[in-house]
Computed example of a mutant assay.
Amino acid sequence: MASTILNLTNVCKSYGAGNRTVDVLRDISFDIAAGTSASIVGPSGSGKTTLLGLCAGLDQSTAGEIWLNGIKLNGLSEDKLAAVRNEHIGFVFQNFQLLPTLTALENVLVPLELKGMRNRKATALDLLAKVGLKDRASHYPSQLSGGEQQRVSLARAFANQPKILFADEPTGNLDAETGMLVENLLFDLNNSQGTTLVLVTHDLDLAAKTDRILPIKGGRLA
C-alpha cells in the first residue's frame, strides 16, 4: 500500500478584512498517497489556489494540521518552509513565472544550483530535451511562445526531482492544442519520475485524467 505524502486534518484559512473575518477554507481534511495524482476543482473564489498554497507551504493555515512527506508545515519559519520547498516540491504556475533575465537553460538550472546538485548543466539540458526545447536553451522567455515558456517551467519544476509537484491551472493561459501538449508532457514526466501530482484546474477533462478529484465549494471539500 502506498504511503501518504500529503495529509490535511481540519485545515481552515481565514483573513481579516477590516473589522470582520473572511473564512476562505473550512475544515478541509484529506490524504494523498505517494505516486498518485489528484486535482482540486471548483468555481472561481472557492479557495482552490489558497488550498494549493497551504499544501505547498507558501502560506500558513489558520487552524488544522498539514503534513508533507512526514514534515509538519504548521509553525515552520519562512526559512524552514523555503528549505522544504527546495528539497521536496516542484511548482508549475499558470503564468509560467520564468525569470525574464535568464535563458531557458538558466531558468532550469536555478533549482539545481539551489540544491547543489552535480552535473547540473547536463541534467538541465536533458530536461529541456524531454520537453522538446533543447534547441531553445539559449533563448530568453520573451523569445519563446506561451507554450514553450510553460514547457520550460515544466522542466524547471522537475529539475530538483521533487517528491510532489503542485500545478496551478497549468494550461490556463494556453490554447487547446498547446494545452494538450503540455498536459501530456506533465503526466509523462510525472509518471517517469514517480512524482506525486496535485493540480488546480477549471478543466474537467484535465481533472478526469488524475487518479482523484477533490471538489471545493464555498471553502469546503464537497
Rank of each mutant, 00 (worst) to 15 (best):
L54T: 07
L76E: 04
L58K: 07
G57L: 00
S77A: 13
G75R: 06
G75L: 03
L68R: 07
L51T: 05
A56R: 00
L68I: 11
T49C: 09
K72Y: 09
S77Y: 08
A63K: 08
L58I: 14
L52V: 14
G64E: 13
A63M: 06
I66Q: 01
E78S: 14
L54Q: 06
G75M: 04
Q60F: 07
N69G: 13
S61E: 11
E65V: 12
W67T: 05
T49V: 12
L58G: 05
S61N: 10
I66F: 03
E78D: 15
D79T: 15
N74W: 03
C55W: 05
S61K: 01
S77F: 02
D79Y: 13
G64T: 07
G57W: 01
L51E: 03
K72Q: 15
L73F: 11
G64F: 05
W67R: 05
I66W: 04
G75Q: 09
G75W: 01
E78G: 14
L73N: 11
A63P: 00
E78M: 08
A63C: 10
E65A: 14
G57A: 06
G64A: 11
W67S: 02
L73R: 12
N69E: 10
S61G: 13
E78Q: 14
G70C: 05
K72R: 15
L73V: 14
E65G: 08
T50S: 05
L73K: 11
D59E: 14
L54F: 09
L73Q: 10
T62V: 00
G57D: 02
N74C: 13
S61D: 06
A56N: 04
E65D: 14
K72T: 15
Q60I: 09
A56P: 02
G64W: 03
G70D: 01
E65M: 13
S61F: 00
G75F: 04
L68M: 08
I71K: 06
C55S: 12
E65Q: 15
E65H: 14
N74F: 01
S77L: 01
Q60G: 01
G57P: 00
N74E: 12
D79V: 15
T50M: 03
L68P: 03
I71V: 11
D79L: 12
L51I: 05
T50P: 00
L51C: 07
A56C: 06
E65F: 10
C55H: 05
S77E: 06
G64K: 08
L68D: 05
E78V: 15
S61C: 14
